[in-house]
Design a protein around this nucleic acid. Structure first.
Length: 199
DNA sequence: CATCCGATTTCCT
DNA sequence: GGAAATCGGATGG
C-alpha cells in the first residue's frame, strides 16, 4: 500500500483512517514529497540529517517534524528503504472520538479540528515523541488504517502549499473534492526580511 | 480578507 | 550566529 511512486501512493491515502489519542480521522488532504536530490520541496532533498533520518528508513513509519516555533506536522514515510519519500497528512475529518478531539481544541469548530497539518496533529495529540513510530503496528500510539471507505468522490490535485521555487512545479497536493475539512490553499510567499531595529 | 507575528528546531554560513 | 521553516491564531479593516 505504501510502495510505489510517492505521487501515486499519496492520493491512495485519501480516505484512510488515522487513529491517535482516542480520535479517528478520515484523511481528506495530503501532499507528496519525494526523496534526496529529486524534490527541492522535500526535507530530504539535501540528504540525510538527524531530523530526516526516518525518511530514509522503511515505509510506514511516522516522520514528525517541528516548524514555525510551535507546530508539529506528521508524514507517512513511503516507498522502499533509502528512497526518503513521504506523504504529509494535511487535513481530515473526525469520524470518531469527537469528544476527545473537542477537548483538545476548545473553541474550535468541528470542521476545523483537523483542517491543516498542524491542527491535525494537535487534535490527535501527535508530537515529536511519535517520530519514527511504525504506523502499521496495531499497538502503536499512532496508527494508519487502509482506506476501506474510499468514496466515489473525485480526487483533485494542485500545487503544494508553502513550497516555492522548483518544488512548486509539481501538482503534488491531493484532496477529496467538496470536503469542507480541506485546508484553505495558501501559495508559498517569501516574506520580506524583517528590518532589524537600529542599535 | 489581509496582515502580523509568535517562539523553537534545524541546518547552513 | 542566524535565516528559514510542509503554519495557525489573533486582530483590524
Amino acid at each position: 500500500m505504501l510502495d510505489g511512486p510517492v505521487d501515486q501512493v499519496a492520493p491512495a491515502l485519501l480516505g484512510a483512517h488515522l487513529v491517535a489519542g482516542g480520535v479517528v480521522v478520515r484523511l481528506t488532504e495530503v501532499e507528496a514529497y519525494a526523496g534526496e536530490g529529486e524534490d527541492p520541496g522535500s526535507h530530504a532533498h539535501r540528504g540525510r540529517t538527524p531530523r530526516t533520518e526516518v525518511m530514509f528508513g522503511p515505509a510506514g513509519r511516522a516522520y514528525v517534524y517541528f516548524t514555525y516555533g510551535m507546530h508539529w506536522c506528521l508524514n507517512v514515510v513511503t516507498g522502499p528503504d533509502g528512497r526518503a519519500s513521504a506523504v504529509l497528512l494535511r487535513a481530515g475529518e473526525v469520524v470518531d472520538g469527537l469528544e476527545a478531539a473537542r477537548a483538545r481544541r476548545p473553541g474550535v469548530r468541528d470542521r476545523d479540528l483537523c483542517r491543516g497539518p498542524a491542527r491535525l496533529t494537535r487534535t490527535l495529540g501527535v508530537t515529536g515523541e511519535h517520530d519514527g513510530v511504525d504506523l502499521l503496528d496495531p499497538l502503536a500510539p499512532v496508527r494508519l488504517l487502509p482506506g476501506t471507505d474510499l468514496p466515489g468522490t473525485a480526487v483533485r490535485t494542485g500545487p503544494r502549499v508553502g513550497v516555492g521555487g522548483l518544488g512548486a512545479a509539481t501538482s503534488w497536493r491531493f484532496w477529496l473534492d467538496g470536503e469542507p475539512t480541506v485546508s484553505p490553499y495558501r501559495a508559498a510567499v517569501v516574506r520580506p526580511r524583517r528590518v532589524r531595529p537600529a542599535p
